[in-house]
Structures are given as C-alpha cells and as structure tokens.
Design a binder for these strands. Structure first.
Lengths: 99, 99
DNA sequence: GCATCTGTTTGATACACGTCGAAATATTCG
DNA sequence: CGAATATTTCGACGTGTATCAAACAGATGC
C-alpha cells in the first residue's frame, strides 16, 4: 500500500534537476516565477518583466521555466495563463534541503 | 526581546541570492557541494571531481561556492579544508520554499 | 477581409562562463 | 637550499545563453 497524498515526494531525474537549477539562476526568470507563484492563474501579458524585456525574451524565459517543469502553460484564446507547478519546485527544494 | 537561536532566519542580499543560484546551477559545482556537505571537514584534495576536472577548474568552482557564501575554506598547512555554511544554504532554501 | 492583440519562432549578436595548460605561490620535507 | 605537494592565478579558447528585431501564427472584433 502506498501512502501517496499531499506530501508524496517526487524524485527529479538528473536532467530535470539541472534544468531547474539553470532556470532559477537567471534573475529575470526568477522574477517571473515569483510573480507566477503569487497569483493563481497569471495571464502572461500581465508579467511585470514586460516593462524591462522584449516579448521575445519573456517568451523564451517562459519556455525555459515550462521545460524545467516549474510552470504550466494553459492556452485560452489569445492569452497564455501561467501557474506554478508546486510538486516540482518542492522536489527541488527538498533535494537542496537534504544536503 | 529577540528569539535568536538555532532557527534565526538569515535574509540574503539580492547579490548573494543571485550568486548562490548561479553557483548551484553547475553540475560539477553541485557535486562538489554535495560531497562537502557529506563530510564535516573535507580536504579539497579528496574531492572526487579531481577525477574529471583539472585542479584549476576545481579551484575555480570552490571560489564560486565560497564567494556565494555556501562553503567556508579553512587553510591549514598546504591543504584547504572545506565545510558547508548551512545558514546560507538554509536561507536560500527558505526563499525558494516561500514561493 | 482587414486590422489588432498576444504570443512564438528564427536568426544574429554579444557577453558570460566552464575549461584547461602553464606559471606562480605556499608549505613541508629531506 | 632544492624537490615535492597542494592550491591559486592568468590567459586563452569554445560553448552556452540572454537579448533583441523581424517575421510569423492564431484569436478577436470591426
């Protein structure tokens, strides 16, 4: 019997662990992640980083975050809605905390 | 009255937060950190990364880890002894966990 | 259809950084 | 002092990547 539930621990493959590390290492990307985490369902167009970065660059960062598994992108009409994927962030945090 | 003690929370300056993120993003550097964390007082010469990296590169990585505040270097004779600086790692983990 | 809005893709550029060899520094030992 | 050991510094090279402008793609509305 497996006690899977809210606290089920996810183990990250090495490749993903590396991708997450790189994704978190860029300040703009981290700022985006912070803002995504703060809201439940964040329309991409409302990211404050649009004030400092070109749309192309913002899109690039979201792709990195998404490929690292940290955020999920839901497309609706012409907008993209972003949400933090907590299990992956938690798994990353846990691995650091286990040091 | 301040309840400072084992769990006193350290707040990282932005510059240090960025330095830590970059430091953790490289796989070799993370491997070094893992090994340093596993031992109390780790002589630099015993790092397994010496099997894969040149001494110059290992030294470079240790400098990065040290400048990020993640490890402390104690020099003794011709050896350098490394130890994990937990408060800083904890502060980093806490900031991620607070997302 | 046409214009507008949101976001992506592509190609180019510039800078950051991981890596090493070689030379330098420091320490211990004979 | 001279040789050996441990680590650092320097200079150079190649790769990775953050960035943008421009072109593209899909959705909405006139």
């Amino acid at each position: 019997m497996q006690a899977r539930s809210a606290s089920a621990k996810l183990t990250l493959p090495d490749a993903q662990f590396r991708a997450i590390g790189r994704a978190l290492a860029d300040p703009h990307r981290f700022a985006i992640l912070e803002q995504v985490a703060a809201l439940e369902d964040m329309p991409c167009s409302r990211l404050e980083e649009h004030a400092v970065l070109s749309p192309a660059t913002v899109s690039h960062h979201m792709k990195e975050l998404s490929e690292a598994g940290l955020v999920e992108i839901r497309r609706e009409g012409r907008e993209a809605y972003l949400s933090l994927h907590r299990p992956v962030l938690d798994a990353y945090v846990n691995r650091l905390a286990a040091l």
